[in-house]
Simulated scan of single mutants.
Amino acid sequence: MKIPQSVRELIEQGPLAHLITLNSKGSPQVTLIWVGIENDEFVIGHLAEHQKIKNIRRDPRVALSMLGDKTNAQGMREY
């Protein structure tokens, strides 16, 4: 997947992101993380092997959500 320029610009501002992984029984596990881009891959920061890392090793499907600093025409923050 090519990372859009708008996402690259947002990440350069240093926002926190929500990483959603899947627990072993399929329920979501949400973690607030630091995120960056190295080459064409997202890079996340973590200090130990927490549940999110165990989940990713078992099932690499994830979702990543970030809140932008711009608002749309309806006055809602972009994400």
Score class of each variant (00 low, 15 high):
M1E: 10
K2R: 09
I3H: 06
I3F: 04
I3R: 10
I3N: 04
P4M: 03
Q5A: 10
Q5Y: 05
S6K: 09
V7W: 10
R8M: 10
L10C: 02
L10Y: 01
L10W: 02
L10K: 06
I11V: 13
E12D: 13
E12L: 09
Q13N: 04
Q13E: 11
P15S: 04
A17L: 05
H18Y: 06
H18Q: 07
L19K: 01
L19C: 08
I20D: 01
T21A: 08
L22K: 11
L22E: 08
L22M: 09
N23V: 01
N23E: 11
K25E: 10
P28N: 03
Q29C: 13
V30E: 02
W34A: 04
W34H: 08
V35L: 15
G36A: 14
E38G: 05
E38Y: 08
N39F: 03
N39C: 03
D40K: 15
E41K: 13
F42I: 10
F42A: 11
V43I: 14
V43L: 12
I44V: 14
G45S: 04
H46G: 11
H46V: 11
H46N: 09
L47R: 06
A48F: 05
A48H: 06
A48R: 07
E49G: 08
Q51K: 12
Q51P: 00
Q51N: 07
I53K: 03
K54Y: 11
K54V: 08
K54R: 15
R57G: 11
R58F: 03
D59N: 15
P60S: 11
R61T: 06
A63R: 14
A63L: 09
L64C: 08
L64T: 07
L64F: 05
L64R: 08
L64S: 05
S65A: 14
L67F: 04
L67C: 06
G68Q: 02
D69M: 02
K70M: 08
N72S: 12
A73K: 15
A73N: 15
G75N: 11
M76A: 05
M76N: 05
R77S: 06
E78Y: 04
Y79V: 02
Y79A: 05
Y79P: 00
